[in-house]
Design a protein around this nucleic acid. Structure first.
Lengths: 225, 225
DNA sequence: GTTTAATTTAAACAACTGTTTAGTTTTAAT
DNA sequence: ATTAAAACTAAACAGTTGTTTAAATTAAAC
């Protein structure tokens, strides 16, 4: 009875390797940390700050994660572990290349938009030289994403639909960069485009911004001078 | 003799209003602050840190700027005061709209690329809710830039060269976002594209990245489905 | 029910934070 | 040479920082 249970736990841990590595208390801390890091930056957030919001003792962060730095690492693992699967599924769908690109853009934006916190943190914290060590796991994620995009575009090029003089690695910066730059300047665009409520803002992203990016990438890939 | 000098100083101060408002010592502090803020973020940089590198007493920051926060404000004024002129000059050149766009993209990238520090800081520090007050001056700068872009595109639309169903305010995010996303992930792209030296990296921006962005915007503006 | 381990706590640690103070040195004006 | 302002300094201020400790509480195992 006991041994069977232990085996089951190990088995489940292999299956859902990353999310289930954290217990309820850890997740509670991670989610508060995500909000605060995103809002005020890693350096702008103190452990006491996290502890207060999460209603735990300040020692619990060290107890569960070792240090503040390793709390950040855990947070990234916690949030980015299932993106690869989503992309792989998309790749195997039976769609025209341009529709795959459009779906990929939608997937990216939806995902980032509903996980704003962690992506803001990634965007902020992993660019400064300060945290170059922890960069590896994040770098692997990006390489995998690029491979998926490459596969789609090369498929389109073989079919003669896409032009061949595009620099594929620079397409991701255009997709993500456009979104990020928009979102980073949220107050500016809220004011400029009259997006008074959070709903209006989100809707604008889901429709207009997504469409703009899709339109841009399509024009870039298909246009013939 | 004395009065003439005083008048001359006042006259010069009017002419070069912002840069010359800071004395040598202040500029020395500002330039160190720029490097450190860009490298480690505003919160990640301490006044003692700045003082040590700039080889000044820690009290001098408060003495010259009032506070750390106002040092940041001064830094932004110091660095962004002449962009508007550059854009106005471009607008008045006699060029085809698409060439103006290309020149504008080149101007943006060159400028940001040779002032990486301050733009990294702007990008980082003025997105978090923490510093929303100081946002105004920056917001005016952005609005002015957008007006310039609008003028060029509307000119092209009147001439029948540019399509009319583009969302103009979203073009800046695509131009700047692409660049920033590339530059923010510098270590990743250095590794991916084999840009081993700083020169190779800068050259890639000046040629390939700039061309990619110009190609993208041109395709977006001119493409007809 | 006892024992062992895991969890949680308050308190303390030393180091660092931005800012102010009171005093000294330097510079410039008359 | 005298005076007043500006520039600069070391020291101290009161808080905050991340982390550790040792003791208390809770949960689990047998």
């Amino acid at each position: 009875m006991f041994k069977l249970n232990a085996c089951l736990v190990l088995f489940l841990k292999k299956l859902i390797p990353l999310k289930s590595n954290f217990n309820d208390k850890q997740i509670q801390i991670l989610e508060v940390a995500e909000i605060l890091f995103a809002e005020k930056g890693f350096d702008g957030t103190s452990i006491r700050n996290i502890a207060k919001v999460a209603k735990i003792n300040i020692a619990m962060v060290s107890y569960y994660f070792g240090s503040k730095e390793r709390l950040l690492e855990s947070l990234i693992v916690y949030r980015t572990s299932d993106l690869k699967n989503q992309l792989d599924n998309l790749l195997q769908e039976e769609l025209e290349p341009i529709d795959k690109i459009n779906k990929l853009i939608e997937l990216y934006i939806n995902r980032i938009n509903s996980n704003r916190g962690i992506y803001r943190i990634l965007h902020f914290e992993f660019t400064s030289k300060k945290r170059e060590q922890n960069l590896q796991a994040f770098s692997e994620l990006k390489k995998g994403n690029l491979k998926s995009l490459e596969a789609i575009i090369e498929e389109g090029q073989k079919k003669g639909i896409f032009r061949k003089d595009v620099i594929i690695p620079l397409i991701t910066p255009t997709i993500l960069g456009t979104f990020f730059h928009f979102h980073m300047n949220k107050p500016f665009f809220e004011n400029l485009l009259n997006l008074k409520t959070e709903d209006l803002y989100n809707n604008y992203i889901k429709t207009n911004l997504t469409k703009h990016i899709q339109q841009t990438i399509k024009a870039l890939l298909i246009y013939e001078s």
